[in-house]
Nucleic acid binder design. Structure first.
Lengths: 167, 167
DNA sequence: TGCCGATATATAACCTGTTATCGAACTGAG
DNA sequence: CTCAGTTCGATAACAGGTTATATATCGGCA
């Protein structure tokens, strides 16, 4: 039996490979933020980040984040259960639901922006830095780097500001 | 509201972005092979390709394909239901289950290798060809190219042999 | 005014990956 | 020989994405 058949199949299985790689990065990031005390996975953050710029409807969030609407509905429901966002029916158009950060949500986003995101950004940037070759080769390179040191370890050890005092 | 917040967040959301991109590529590939008459999604092919080199156990397949064992179990069950593989308990070690292509499975793999895979490989290779810049930029570039012409269209129009008479 | 198509969201079901756990079968130490 | 530990695979439950569909509301037009 071959070592890594999927890699060997090249472009044919790139989709599956990217999906796995993305899942792995999400999991490692969630691992890190859980270790930092947050009680929810990393996938919630994009919605929170979007809302920091002001309230938005479900559809607007889906558009801004580039995901399908049911995904946003699910995330928003979960964040509302945690008390981080508040959902209100818009008075003008009662089909629309406006989503806004609660004070607790705002506080959490501010803290994340200050303490968490820079480290995660730096960790991912570090893992991607200086990858070379074709796209396929860069994907392989990224996989190997994560094998070597996963994102949660990189984030824990990161000195943010070195690279990414990003969003 | 911003256009594409996830892209703007940079490395912070790369995991989610890769996952989405991979899912999209799988879906477009499945779209193409369904149009070509196959009755199952693209995600089954790696297992079939692996089995072309001979029978293997569930664990060996998981190892060779780099996926978790329950995923292989599920795919194998589905392929067995379709009559493409046959699963037998190994006489020596009755924990192990040997998976092998049936004649129908062999025939299908041979046809796919001849008619389908080269076109898919060529389509993906074409979409990835000449991407430039950092990994993040290449991901963005690939997303834009698929927006422009999805894989199923590329595969349908592909002249295999041009680039990829691959595995 | 009343109805009809369009739009916003919710819900359901599916896909394909994951981890955790369990039962069955093997293996080696005593 | 027996029993404890290990390994194999199946199963269950979860994650986060999707599509398809249902429901409610809006807006325009006869």
């Amino acid at each position: 039996m071959v070592d890594d058949l999927v890699a060997e199949l090249g472009h044919l299985t790139l989709g599956s490979r990217l999906k796995r790689l993305g899942e792995r990065m999400q999991a490692e990031t969630s691992q890190f933020i859980r270790a930092q005390g947050a009680g929810f996975p990393a996938s919630r953050f994009p919605v929170l980040a979007a809302l920091e710029q002001g309230a938005a409807t479900v559809g607007e969030l889906a558009e801004a984040l580039g995901v399908a609407q049911p995904g946003v509905t699910r995330t928003v429901t979960s964040l509302a259960d945690l008390g981080l966002v508040e959902v209100t029916t818009e008075p003008g158009d009662r089909r629309r639901r406006a989503v806004a950060l609660t004070p607790a949500g705002t506080e959490l986003v501010e803290r994340a922006r200050r303490d968490l995101w820079p480290r995660i950004d730096a960790a991912v940037a570090e893992a991607c830095a200086g990858l070379e070759g074709s796209f396929l080769e860069q994907v392989g390179g990224l996989e190997r780097r994560l094998d070597d040191r996963p994102l949660d370890r990189r984030a824990a050890e990161a000195r943010p500001g070195a690279e990414g005092s990003a969003p």
